[in-house]
Simulated assay, not measured.
Amino acid sequence: MKKEHMTMLSLFLIPLMLFSACGAPSAPPPVETESSVQVQPTEQVRPVEGVPGPAELLYQGQASMRIVTDEGKVIYIDPYVGEGYDLPADLILVTHAHYDHNGVDRIENRNPDCQVITWKEAIQNGEHQVFDLGYVTVEAVEAGYNRWHDVSECVGYVLTFSNGKSIYVTGDTSTTEQMADMAEMGIDYAFFCCDGVFNMGLEEAVEAAKLVGAKHNIPYHVTARNDVFFDRTLAEQFNVENRLILDIGETLLVE
């Protein structure tokens, strides 16, 4: 009887062992975390036919920047310092006459139809103008409101590109009356001056950013020193939600 019991037990165990070795599912492989996955940037920015791509913005220091649109148009804003003035200009924007915003002569390489828009063209008969250039729409907005910057001789600009994305550059300013209405513009990237000497300081710039309500808030023109054109330590004191910091020479895709 004992022998028969052992035989039956063996007949039961053999198939069970075979099933365990061959048919049982193996343990799942370890899941990679997001930080370990190698993202291919080219896949992320692959252009879609018929859909405008982002403009590329190069921050040059102080209030200077260069923008290359999806159409290949080159825009310089408040030229003064930094590298990257080699590309032929299609549009030069100047917010006001001060030397650290108005180095237009530095841009020698210009396309034949290059346009220069300064505060003089941007304010006509007391009205701030809008310029629809096809590849970009430039809307002049108020700037000034302090003893060094007269509102009639200073402007900021809101640029809207062919993909619908927009940037706002304050130029030199304190808080303006118009800022309270600018949230309606749905601005994507806003650059706020905050040197605290000739313009609003960091705390006032934070309040201005709250008024404007842009999706990303970027400090620039953070010092009034002639030998320092960007101070990251000061920029990091721009304590506002959705802050984005660009160092000199860094680029931003306006998307």
Rank of each mutant, 00 (worst) to 15 (best):
2 K>F: 12
2 K>E: 15
3 K>E: 14
7 T>H: 14
8 M>P: 02
9 L>M: 15
11 L>H: 07
20 S>A: 12
20 S>K: 01
28 P>C: 10
33 T>R: 10
34 E>Y: 09
36 S>M: 05
36 S>R: 09
44 Q>C: 12
47 P>T: 08
47 P>A: 03
51 V>A: 05
55 A>I: 13
64 S>C: 15
76 Y>D: 13
79 P>F: 05
82 G>V: 01
83 E>Y: 08
85 Y>A: 02
88 P>M: 03
93 L>T: 02
94 V>G: 00
95 T>M: 12
101 H>F: 07
101 H>E: 11
102 N>V: 10
109 N>I: 11
112 P>V: 11
113 D>E: 12
113 D>S: 07
118 T>D: 07
119 W>E: 10
124 Q>P: 00
124 Q>G: 04
125 N>Q: 11
127 E>H: 01
131 F>I: 06
135 Y>P: 11
141 V>R: 04
146 N>K: 07
147 R>F: 06
153 E>P: 14
154 C>S: 15
157 Y>T: 08
163 N>Q: 15
170 T>D: 12
170 T>G: 14
175 T>Q: 09
187 I>C: 08
189 Y>N: 04
190 A>N: 03
192 F>V: 00
192 F>K: 06
194 C>F: 00
194 C>N: 11
195 D>G: 02
198 F>Q: 04
199 N>S: 14
201 G>M: 08
201 G>V: 13
202 L>G: 02
203 E>F: 03
208 A>C: 13
210 K>R: 13
211 L>W: 11
212 V>H: 04
213 G>A: 09
221 H>A: 06
223 T>C: 12
224 A>C: 03
227 D>I: 08
230 F>A: 03
230 F>Y: 06
230 F>L: 04
234 L>P: 02
235 A>D: 02
237 Q>D: 08
239 N>A: 10
239 N>W: 02
253 L>N: 08
254 V>H: 01
255 E>H: 13
